[in-house]
């Protein structure tokens, strides 16, 4: 096959064929984000806290997760978890939708990623603002909740965006356990056409992820600038100007 043989009509056909399977991608990404945010927050708290055992555990967990290849963890979760549940609680997990196994696997990685993002965002808010708050009559938790965390949250947005994009892409490994997401679908189509459309199929798939990434990137950039304090200030001032012009009109 020659690159010039790639047909545009096939590219479009496969591209449209893959789109509905993004719902599977959405499912495991959401599951992984939920796991990552909840447990990542606890881990970040452990990393920032004074308790040495929690700190050691949180740092150790991150180090281990960084070292394991995704596919190895996926196999451990997919083949290992049902065995453990069968042995310990006599619960059969083998008939559960595979998307959950992929979501849990990605979630386990994401805990490490999110905890690092949360930790560094928290630390990047200047400690002086916390000091100012407690010396200005706020309690320590009020200072953290009202002053430090809102800023940390905003700082974390670009990194969280990157984490989500990584999850989307890593999830394609789910085809190895038979998950049919857009990647799994591409493999099916490839088999059905006896590899005759292999270029069209995978170029379409790459384009799909490319566009998805661009859209997400735009979304996060928009959220980032929407939440920036200078744009909020402009809004306030325009609101104020609006009120004044209304008054003048009245």
């Amino acid at each position: 096959m020659n690159i010039t043989d790639v047909k545009l009509s096939y590219l479009i056909e496969y591209f449209l064929d893959f789109i509905p399977f993004l719902s599977v991608t959405l499912q495991y990404t959401l599951l992984a984000m939920a796991i990552g945010i909840v447990f990542g927050l606890l881990m970040a708290k452990g990393k920032l806290g004074k308790n040495r055992i929690l700190k050691g555990f949180a740092n150790g967990y991150t180090a281990v997760m960084r070292a394991i290849p995704s596919i190895v963890l996926l196999f451990l979760v997919y083949y290992g978890l049902p065995k453990i549940f069968m042995g310990a609680f006599a619960i059969n997990l083998t008939r559960i939708n595979k998307v959950y196994f992929v979501g849990i696997t990605l979630g386990l990685f994401n805990i490490a990623i999110m905890s690092e993002i949360m930790k560094s965002s928290y630390l990047s808010v200047d400690r002086g603002q916390y000091e100012a708050a407690v010396s200005n009559g706020l309690t320590s938790s009020q200072a953290i909740i009202r002053i430090v965390l809102p800023q940390a949250f905003r700082i974390s947005i670009p990194n969280v965006g990157n984490a989500i994009i990584t999850l989307l892409k890593e999830g394609t490994l789910g085809y190895t356990i038979g998950l049919i997401d857009s990647m799994g679908r591409a493999n099916q189509q490839n088999a059905l056409t006896f590899q005759n459309h292999i270029l069209e199929i995978y170029i379409s798939l790459a384009a799909l992820y490319w566009i998805l990434t661009i859209l997400l990137d735009r979304g996060f950039k928009a959220a980032d600038s929407k939440l920036s304090y200078s744009s909020r200030a402009k809004e306030r001032q325009t609101v104020k100007a609006g009120e004044i012009s209304k008054e003048v009109a009245a």
Binding site: A133, Q151, R236
Partner: peptide, 26 residues
């Protein structure tokens, strides 16, 4: 009350909110 070398204003609050925060909460 403390006035800092680096001002340490709350960057997520307006000038007015910087002042009211301690009054309302503290």
């Amino acid at each position: 009350a403390f006035v800092f070398q680096n001002y340490n204003l709350y960057n997520n609050k307006t000038a007015l909110e910087n002042v009211t925060e301690g009054l309302i909460l503290g």
